[in-house]
Design a protein around this nucleic acid. Structure first.
Lengths: 189, 189
DNA sequence: GCTTTTATATTGCAGTCGTATTGTCAAACG
DNA sequence: CGTTTGACAATACGACTGCAATATAAAAGC
C-alpha cells in the first residue's frame, strides 16, 4: 500500500470546494473540472474519490445538513443547561438563518439543493427526515393547543425568512424581528 | 412583409414549453433544444424569438410572476366586493400556495428561479418589487402594532409553507392549518 | 530489490451546450 | 412582374460536460 491518506478528509476537501463553487456560481456550475480547480487539485483526483457526479452531489448534500446541525449544536452549547424553551427555540432558529456571511453561503447551497431535490424526489429523503425530526423536537417544547401545528408554522416561518434574507428582500434585522414577534405569540407573557 | 404572426403569442408558446421542462426536469435542463422539442418547434424558431438564452429565461421569469398574479386576482374576484380582511388575506395566500397540480408546476419553477436569482442578483429586481408591494398591501389591512413586521411574518410563513409543500414535507392540509392558526393570532376573536 | 497497490495526473471520447451563419420559402409591396 | 422582407430551418463551430482509459509515481509488503 502506498501513501496513506484519509479518504474522508479528501472527500471533505472536495466537498468544501464544491460548496464554494455552488455558493457563488450556482449548483448548475458544479462540474468536475470547476470543483477540482477550486480545490486546487486535478480533475482526476475528484474522480478518484467520487465515482460519479451524482455521488459527489449527494455527499455534498449531507455536508450541508451536517453544517446546519453543527451550527445548531454550537449555538445551543453556549446556552448552558436547561435554558427556557423560548430562548432555546430562538437560539436554534437564529442559528439556522443565513444572517452572517458564512451561513449565507451555506444557505445559498441549501436553497439550490431544495430546488434540486424538488425535481429528484429520490434525493429528498434525508431532508424529509430532518424536517420531521425538527417538527417533533419543536412541538415537544410548546405548551399550546395543537403543538405540532404550531411547530410546523414556526419552522415554515423560519424557512421563509431564510429565503427572503438570502434573496436580499429582508435585512437580517427584520427577519429577527419577525421571529421574535412570532415567538411573542407562542409564549404569551 | 411576409406572413404576419403575433410575436408575443409565439414567445408565450415557447415560454410555456420552458415552464414544462423546468417543472419536471429542473431549470438546469432548460436548453434551446429541449424547449424547442417540448414546444414541438425547431430550435431555430426559438432563436428567432429570443436572441439569447438569458433573454428567454428572464421572459420566463416574468411569465411566472404574471401567473401568480393572475391566480391571486382570480381568487379575489370570486370574493365579491369589500370582503373582510381576514378572508381576503387567506384567499390571497391560499391562491399562492402550490396546492393543486397546476400551481405545483408553477411553484417548482418559481423555486428554481429563487435559487437562480440568488446567484444572479441582477435578475432579482422584479422579485424584490413584488415582495415589497405585497408587504405594503398586507400591512395595510392589519390592525396590529407593527403592521409591517406582521405582514413580513405572514408572507415569510407563506413562502416557507409553499416550500415545504413543494418538497413533500407538509401535506396541503397541514399547510392550510398552519396558515389558519397564524391568522387566528393576527385576528383575535 | 522487486512487485503490488494505491494516489494522482493526463488524455481522449462522445455528447450537449449556446450561438452565429447560412439557406429556404412565402407573403406583401412597388 | 420582380424584389424585398420577415418567419423559420438547418448546419457548423468552439467550448464545455461526464466519464473511461491510461500513464506516472511512490510507498508498503515479500
Amino acid at each position: 500500500m502506498p501513501k496513506k491518506v484519509d479518504p474522508e478528509e479528501r472527500r471533505r476537501l472536495i466537498a468544501d470546494a464544491l460548496m464554494r463553487v455552488a455558493a457563488d456560481q450556482g449548483l448548475e456550475s458544479v462540474s468536475l473540472r470547476h470543483v477540482a480547480a477550486q480545490a486546487g487539485v486535478s480533475a482526476g483526483m475528484v474522480q478518484h474519490y467520487f465515482s460519479s457526479r451524482d455521488e459527489m452531489m449527494s455527499f455534498a448534500l449531507t455536508v450541508v445538513r451536517e453544517r446546519s446541525q453543527r451550527k445548531v449544536t454550537e449555538a445551543l452549547a453556549g446556552l448552558g443547561a436547561d435554558p427556557p424553551p423560548r430562548l432555546l427555540l430562538r437560539t436554534m432558529i437564529a442559528a439556522l438563518l443565513p444572517l452572517d456571511d458564512e451561513s449565507r453561503d451555506n444557505g445559498r447551497v441549501a436553497l439550490a439543493f431544495l430546488a434540486y431535490t424538488a425535481v429528484r424526489p429520490a434525493a429528498a429523503a434525508e431532508l424529509h427526515d430532518d424536517t420531521a425530526q425538527m417538527v417533533d423536537f419543536v412541538a415537544g417544547m410548546l405548551k399550546v393547543p395543537d403543538p405540532v401545528g404550531a411547530a410546523a408554522s414556526l419552522l415554515a416561518l423560519m424557512e421563509g425568512l431564510g429565503i427572503y434574507v438570502l434573496g436580499g428582500q429582508y435585512p437580517a434585522q427584520r427577519a429577527l424581528q419577525a421571529l421574535d414577534a412570532h415567538l411573542d405569540l407562542l409564549f404569551p407573557a
